[in-house]
Design a protein around this nucleic acid. Structure first.
Length: 486
RNA sequence: GGCGCCGUGGCCGAGUGGCUAGGCAGGGGCCUGCAAAGCCCCCUACUCCGGUUCGAAUCCGGACGGCGCCUCCA
């Protein structure tokens, strides 16, 4: 099967073919850095991370740009309210964004330009549009004349004629546009005292329009035509619609061959909103005791074009699901070192899993089916492992597949990280109690042994008696202790 | 009003004309001193009403219910 994505432009599944073989130019609408990003934002970023990881796994070189919108209405409003400069507002937020990005194990993208550092390119883009007669000046501002751009609204499947009434309903009489539907490229005109965002331009002082920022930065880094442009569904209109108008209007070339959009998140069945207080940030979720690996898994476990209902129960379930795969990998790794080998069916199972995984992901990133492939291998693999000895080739194949899974989903290494940084005191205490329990068990004083185990359980230490070792699980961390000689 | 999406077992969530999704939870069993982990078995669904078809969760029509976008929210 070939790699296929749902292209919002055609509203169909299409085979993916980059312009330059083997190299993908991808643009992602990044965060507006006026406030810390919430889980909903990260649903989109995580899916984009999955997409880039999968493309890389498929052998493509990925060149991804994700902008940081550090100048727009909201960042400016925040700066004004707090009496700060734009940078004083945005810099700390960018810091938090990077922190959360790392917490959830997202890969670094190749370029993450700030809008404020690319105003020159934006002005040049506006000039091109003016030269081509697609933009006009009115009262110090520059507007895009959508009436002169055939096909406006195609991406969002909107009829331009329908847009007028919506505009009037919004009662936007603020600017002196020729046509109410036109959107702003450069916000000029009269400046207020102490304005926080002002640049010089051939049309006087002002600042770039939001839509323009993405067009300019995308083309500056990736050229006139991108392979993939991603974002949330809410961006279909007006943001991406306007990006197309600006970019194609200026270059005469297709702006992006593929447009991929992620659906929004519901939280406990409800739309996220400030008034409901359900716009959770990543640190808030961690604060509530949820592991980053659980958050990452849950947010990735639903198809990107479907609304995902983010529930706290789901987070707990996700922790178990991740743990199941993680434990399986640990088990396979342990087996590799200690068994003698003969032919077994494990290799075939791993190969089957890989084929199904790839077919699923090729199909517009069908993560559910891909995960089913993983879990089937976990179950079948455990079944085989219950009856050692196994074939070494099989183990290698399983580990190779789990490495594939990890390269794409990135959830096992997060789990590893959570298990690091042992609480030495607790570990020492647990080992001491375990020794006491072993002694009680040797004396067949099971009442005492169980009492000690309960005592450990009270501190969230789970005891697992295996064949020749005892495993202590302290949260995400595991300690293996040899059993006393009999 | 315009454009579009969705309704699957206790919960989450794939599938898209006939053939096991998967995870989590629950019940029974194996293993264990007892557990835990793991395995086996069970619980086995497709909003409703028509239609097409040998056969529909899957296609068509309708109803009901939920949701998104329609100028700056991922």
């Amino acid at each position: 099967m070939t790699l296929r994505f749902h292209n919002s432009l055609t509203r169909r599944l299409e085979p993916f073919e980059p312009i330059e073989p083997g190299r993908v130019r991808m643009y992602t609408c990044g965060p507006t850095v006026y406030d810390r990003a919430h889980v909903g934002n990260f649903r989109a970023f995580l899916w984009e991370d999955l997409l880039r990881r999968y493309l890389k796994w498929k052998g493509f070189e990925v060149d991804q740009v994700m902008n940081l919108t550090d100048v727009d209405d909201r960042t400016i409003a925040a700066a004004r309210e707090r009496g700060m400069t734009l940078a004083e507002v945005t810099e700390p937020v960018i810091g938090m964004f990077v922190e959360d990005w790392d917490t959830l194990g997202l890969e670094a993208v190749e370029h993450s330009p700030r809008a404020t550092e690319h105003v020159g390119g934006m002005i040049a883009l506006i000039q091109k549009l003016l030269d081509r007669g697609l933009a006009y000046e009115a009262d110090g501002s520059i507007y895009f004349a959508i009436g002169k751009f055939p096909g406006y609204g195609r991406l969002a499947n909107l009829d331009p004629a329908e847009l007028v009434s919506a505009q009037r309903a919004a009662g936007d009489e603020e600017y002196d546009k020729d046509d109410a539907r036109d959107f702003v490229l450069w916000k000029g005109g009269e400046r207020e005292e102490g304005d926080v965002a002002v640049w010089d331009s051939p049309w006087g002082q002002g600042r770039p329009g939001w839509h323009l920022e993405c067009s300019a930065m995308a083309m500056e880094y990736l050229g006139d035509t991108l392979d993939i442009h991603t974002g949330g569904v809410d961006n279909l209109f007006p943001h991406h619609t306007n990006e197309i108008a600006q970019s194609e209007g200026a270059t005469g070339q297709t702006f992006s061959n593929n447009w991929l959009h992620a659906a929004h998140l519901l939280v406990e069945g409800q739309k996220m909103s400030k008034s409901l207080g359900n716009c959770y940030t990543i640190p808030e979720l961690v604060e509530k005791g949820h592991q980053p690996s659980s958050i990452r898994y849950l947010l990735l476990s639903g198809h990107y074009r479907s609304q995902l209902n983010f529930k706290f129960d789901g987070l707990v379930n996700a922790a178990h699901a991740v743990g199941r795969i993680h434990e399986f990998r640990r088990r396979v790794q342990a087996v590799e070192e200690s068994s003698t080998w003969s032919e077994g069916p494990l290799a075939a199972l791993a190969k089957e899993a890989r084929v199904r995984f790839e077919e699923a992901m090729d199909n517009d990133l069908n993560v559910s089916d891909a995960l089913a492939a993983v879990f089937n291998l976990v179950r079948e693999g455990n079944h085989q492992l219950d009856r050692v000895p196994l074939d070494a080739g099989g183990v290698d194949n399983v580990l190779a597949f789990l490495a594939d899974f990890e390269a794409v989903f990135g959830v096992l290494s997060l789990r590893d990280r959570e298990g690091a940084g042992p609480d030495e005191g607790l570990v020492a205490w647990a080992i001491e109690r375990l020794a006491a329990r072993d002694l009680a068990r040797a004396n067949r004083d099971f009442g005492q042994a169980d009492a000690i185990r309960d005592e450990m359980a009270a501190k969230d230490v789970v005891v697992e008696d295996l064949a020749d070792v005892t495993r202590l699980r302290l949260g995400a961390q595991t300690v293996v202790v040899p059993k006393p000689a009999k």
